[in-house]
Amino acid sequence: MNLIGTLPLVLDVKTLFFIINKGLQGNVCGQEFLDIILMAAAFDQKVVVLFEGDGVNALLKNQQPECLNLKNMMPVLDTLPVYDINDVIVEKESMEVYGLTENELAIKAAVVSRSDIKKRLRSADHLFGF
């Protein structure tokens, strides 16, 4: 079978939702997940990144994971606009759980309520979690 011959020349554009609902540190999964997000954008897919649950803490300014010998993910999050990933949303209710306010977030993200997120999730072709 000629696999190459079956591949379309241009990928269909799909809406891909990436859900970050836990801390990015602790194991390599967070880092790999961010790589997948960037790659999806590099392949011209429509990417939405959603931070909810414990994941909202990943957006906090002035993190110093280096003191625990962990990789700082903030520089990678800072590259999102380079790859035209501008649709970044944070769940309002999760921010409230941790008492976070919008000006404590290190990158530009839209604060959206759980009910509105549910509506947006329906528009996704694929959901990714880690």
């Binding site: 960037l38 790659m39 590099a42 392949f43 520089p75 800072d78 590259t79 380079v82 790859y83």
Partner: peptide, 14 residues
Amino acid sequence: EFNHQPNARLFARA
């Protein structure tokens, strides 16, 4: 700026 090294595809995109 980013303290990050992209892979080849991202590099070309950037």
